[in-house]
Design a protein around this nucleic acid. Structure first.
Lengths: 122, 122
DNA sequence: TTGACAGTTGAACAACCACTCAACTATAGA
DNA sequence: TCTATAGTTGAGTGGTTGTTCAACTGTCAA
């Protein structure tokens, strides 16, 4: 077993680390991947996005469905809109929202199937 | 277009909302789904998990690979261990970590393929 | 036994985040 | 015009979180 010290950082298994480094996607890609997962990492947003994956809904309907305030929903929708995950359409006073990013919808469905096919947590 | 007020909450499209409600997974499932995505919603954890999906590595190697401290990595590994996402094996002073949850590995890979096949953000 | 090192841990801190509240805009209907 | 309602927005707030720092444990080798 070899031991090295490079740039004041200890390395135990240099070969394995360089092998991993060579097939690791660029930093920017992994950061964007984390950002994508982060958007889905909130119960309110997950429920909003799941609902929108089934139907086009207005803010009022989503608030009623989730049992929260229109303000809270509107704040989350603004975030989702800024990330181009959600699209909006005005009809008089009412603003209808729908999914705008098929990737997110797919990830949601895949994640859901993983969860439901999974055993119990300890 | 019908308008209702139920339990002091306004409903615009009652039919759509009840239709969505009928095919929405239980609250607990969606919360767990969000928790799963939340674990992946951090750059450090994503990079750790991606590395471990390729090789079994010790704390020192991961810290060197990511360019951070062993302490920061150890804290994250403790979280991942408590969620049964990561497994550890002691070899003398050295502790080797590897993935323990195939679901997470799959989600990571699927998310990555979605990202890389995606266009640019605005 | 002693020193070096891999790894863990708890406290502290700064940054972030989701929600609430109140004020506001805009549109429909009377 | 006047009122009610859908929706937005900004400030504030309490809670969460990722990292740092320092102290600690445990193991190897001399």
């Amino acid at each position: 077993m070899s031991e090295f010290t490079i740039c004041s950082i200890n390395l135990i298994n240099e070969a394995k680390v360089t092998a991993v480094r060579n097939v690791t996607p660029p930093e920017a890609i992994l950061v964007r991947l984390a950002e994508t997962f982060k958007v889905l990492g909130d119960p309110t947003r997950v429920r909003i996005l799941h609902a929108l994956s089934l139907e086009e809904l207005c803010v009022c309907d989503i608030a009623s469905l989730l049992g929260t305030t229109k303000s809270a929903i509107s704040h989350q929708l603004r975030l989702l809109r800024s990330l181009r995950i959600v699209r909006h359409r005005k009809d008089g006073r009412i603003v209808y929202y729908s999914l705008d990013d098929s990737h997110v919808g797919n990830l949601l469905r895949e994640g859901l199937s993983h969860i439901t096919s999974q055993g119990e947590l300890p």
